[in-house]
Every structure is written in C-alpha cells, then in structure tokens.
Design a protein around this nucleic acid. Structure first.
Lengths: 251, 251
DNA sequence: GTGGACAATTTGTCCGGACATTTGTAACGG
DNA sequence: CCGTTACAAATGTCCGGACAAATTGTCCAC
C-alpha cells in the first residue's frame, strides 16, 4: 500500500496536486486557512506523515505558509517563477577582468546632507566615506571607468584595501567584515561625459557613456555601500543572464 | 526528549550542522558518499526519521544529492549564494507603464544570413520574423523606445497581437503559446542616435541613448525571440533589484 | 566469457503513536 | 476595562516499524 495502485504515483503527490489545483482555481483563496493536518488525514484517508509530505511540497512551491498554532494558510494563488542570476555569486555584477585595477584619486569623510542622503538612500547626517577612483587595466591602459563610491562609516576600514585592488568594493567588505550584500539595487542609464569626467577618462567631453549606480543593502535593508560608475560607451557593455529557477514539481 | 536538552535546538538541526561542517571542512570531499541513513542513526543515536530530516536540510542547501540504491553523495563543498530577481515574474525586465503601447512600423519575414544569425545566436538560414516598432504612451506622447524584435518562425502568430499591445512580446508569446523564457540574456550599452533613429524617436541625431538587447531562450537553450530596444537617455533608466536567496539555515 | 537471476544495500514511501511548542482565544481576576 | 491565566487547536519534533523501489554487485547456468 505504499503507492496508490491506480496512478502509480506516491500518495503525497496525489494529495499535493489536488490541493495545488484547489489553490490555483481559487477554491482556497489567498489568506484562507487550509484544513488542518488532522482533517486532511481524514479527508484523504492517509497518515499524518503523508499529509505533511504533501504540505511540504506546497510550501516549496511557495503556495502556503505554515505556522505552529495557526495552521496552513494560502500565500499565493499562482506559482511564482523566479529568475536567478547565473553564476555562483554576484560576480556577474562586476565583470572585471583579472588584471583590471582601481586607482584611488581622492578619499574623504563626509556627513550626508539632504541631497547626499537621498542619493544614498540613508539618513541625513549619517557618517560616510567618499571615494573617487579610476578603473583601468593594470600597467596603465586606457581607463575603463570612473567610479564614485560611498562606504558607510562602520566599514571605512576597507579604504586601505582599495588602492590597486582588482575586486569590487563589496567583495573587499565581505573579505574584511564578512558582510554579504543581501540585496543589490541597480540603475543603469545613458548620459554624456562632462568636461571633468572626460579628462579623467581620457575621452572627449560630450561622448556617450553608461552610468551604473548600485546600492548594496544589508539583511535589514540598510544601505552600506553605494557605487556609481561611469563607463565611456565603447569601452564597456553590461551583460547579464537570468535563468528560471527549476520548478519544483508536485510529483 | 523531543528536543536535545543541552542546546534546546532540534536534534536534526544539530546533526545537519555537524554534517554540514564536515562537508565544508572537506572531511567528506565532493563526490564522496556519506554514511547511510542506518549508519547515521547509530552514530548519532537518533531515529531514521530524524536522520532523514537532517539530510533533507543538506539537500536543500545544495550540498548533497540522494538516490535510492546509491546513497547520499556530496555535491558541493560550499554553500552557493544565489541572487534572485525580485518581483513575481520577469516583469521588472520590462517596466512598462500600463498605458505604454507598441506601435508597429514594419514587419517582414527573413531568413537569417550569417550576420543576422550571429546577432540572434541561432543557425544560419533559419526562418524568423522581423518587426520594428515604437513604444510610446497611449494617446501619443513622445516615443520612449525604438524597438527591433526578431521572432522565430514558429511563433510568428503573435505578430497579430503586437499592434497596440502594452505588454512585452515575450509575454504575448507566453499567452498564446504557453512558452515561458527559461533564460534571458541581457546586454546594455550606451550609444548615440543615428539620423534615422532620432527621427523615429522625435529626438536629435547624436543624442545619447541606452541600447538593451535581450535574448529569450527556451528550456533547451534555443533562442526564440530577440528584442533590441533603443531608449533616449533622458526618457528611460533601467533598474533592477537582486535579492539573495534567503539562506536555508540548518537550524 | 556472458547474460540473467538473485541478493544485498540504500533510499523512498507509508503507517501508527507520543509529546513539545506555538498561538489565538476565552475565561478569569484585579 | 485590562492584563493574566488557562485551555484548545494547530504545527513541530521524535520514536518505532514495515514494505517498495532503485541500484549495484555476485553467482550460476549456458
């Protein structure tokens, strides 16, 4: 009796599919509470273990949440398709060649005024360190990017690690403080180079450029680093691959 | 005895953490087979149910694979951190306002020559449909984007759905054919508008612009749609949020 | 030697029971 | 009226056992 004779599929899979269809069809709307494990045992004439296995599938599909003392509640009436950034880390977010290094031009400590706080997404008056630098091939090729970075005061210790580094700053923060970005917000826009920027980048004023602004947030969604990079158009293309998360099947 | 007295944590969590540390430290190298469930029961003096709960955690962490008749084998010696595109679909990939519609300028059937095949990432000689259109606010505001799209012959039926549509083409393909992109490859670069492009966009020749190229791939990694959009700089900013997949803790 | 039957091992499925922990609510006492 | 307590209900943890299915290797017959 370990498999249902008719279908040849595990019983928990049959139950999971039935419940899934009930949720997708709206029979159990979002927010509703599913019958308790005990009730489902009686309804499908199965053991509690099998019931829990079925509910575990629904949970993995993101359809329900389960809490002791409350029950099983419908979280979503459709199966969410999530896209995952390929590669094992955020490495695709920096795409720096191995021999690309950052040369620091200027460093200063600031207190965020209203405009800066808005840019950084932080509180006014918070203490930050500001850094300006140029990314170029090691050995002195043409510069690829002009970067303005803001690092929250608590992690200013990385400032000493930055000169000549071939890694993005968030990676240096991770190495020194063990802080991994929980969320990364990116904004990409086109612009033209100003006179000062063009000079730093050995380009012409008015040339088209890509501006990428990235906010790095902690688990608590506090911004702890902001990087604004300016890439002359012909020297850089941002690229990105998202892959659908392999769907968790009920069977 | 349902919780281990010393730690106050569930027993399966203790076992899962012990095994996790053994894997991360290399005591069980990648490819090695862990002790069988029976052996782990004896080793930790727990029931098979608890053992399986612990191993289920390791599986969720992506550290091991389990197969009947074979055993539990180490798949990875480090916990991969995956970043997920937030939002319930790829909707962040299009960011179109509700009343932004696509007006078709031109449609043609083509056979991919060498250059086109390279651009599309497909085979030379394959049959595609080509479409040029302009995205603008409904009611005739300034155009926001000039778009060139390529759709593989099999899905050319969507061409009739496109005129005036407020949704991205991949979404129309999904609605009509049930095909969801399994992978999306994106390239973003800065450029300047050519004379013809500027005219279509009611902009000036030489203005900076954002070019976004997207390849949509099936599960088998065959390209079935390519969209190339050109956005005048001040009319559009691409934005994006990646969130770390909530780490599956052993506890 | 090779193919097939068989056995041993391992994980998968499923049942029964028991107690712990969490949470919402209702009864109670101030 | 409000805070506390007590209870009930739900899920979480854990144990025992049994058989099924998948896989691998061994042994025997040919």
């Amino acid at each position: 009796m370990s498999r249902s004779q008719v279908s040849g599929r595990p019983r928990y899979a049959v139950v999971a599919q039935a419940l899934t269809e009930d949720i997708l069809s709206g029979r159990y709307p979002v927010g509703a509470t599913l019958p308790s494990e005990h009730a489902l045992c009686a309804q499908f004439d199965i053991s509690r273990h099998t019931t829990r296995e079925a509910l575990r599938r629904l949970q993995a599909l993101g359809l329900v949440t389960r809490r002791a003392g409350v029950g099983t509640q419908v979280k979503s009436d459709h199966i969410v398709q999530r896209y995952v950034q390929v590669g094992d880390t955020v490495s695709d977010l920096y795409q720096y060649a191995k021999d690309m290094v950052l040369n620091v031009l200027e460093v200063s400590d600031i207190k965020a005024d209203a405009a800066t706080a808005a840019l950084l997404g932080s509180e006014k008056g918070e203490a930050w360190s500001q850094l300006r630098g140029v990314r170029a091939m090691d050995g002195g090729g043409v510069p690829v990017a002009l970067m303005d970075a803001y690092i929250i005061h608590a992690y200013r210790g990385v400032l000493g690690d930055i000169e000549g580094a071939g890694l993005p700053i968030w990676s240096l923060i991770e190495a020194r403080y063990g802080i991994v970005p929980a969320e990364v917000r990116q904004q990409i826009s086109a612009t033209t180079l100003g006179r000062n920027e063009a000079e730093r980048l050995a380009a012409r004023e008015g040339d088209p450029a890509l501006r990428i602004t990235r906010h790095y947030l902690t688990q608590a969604l506090d911004v702890y680093e902001v990087a604004i990079s300016l890439y002359p158009a012909e020297r850089f293309t941002y690229s990105n691959t998202l892959r659908i998360e392999q769907p968790v099947s009920v069977s």
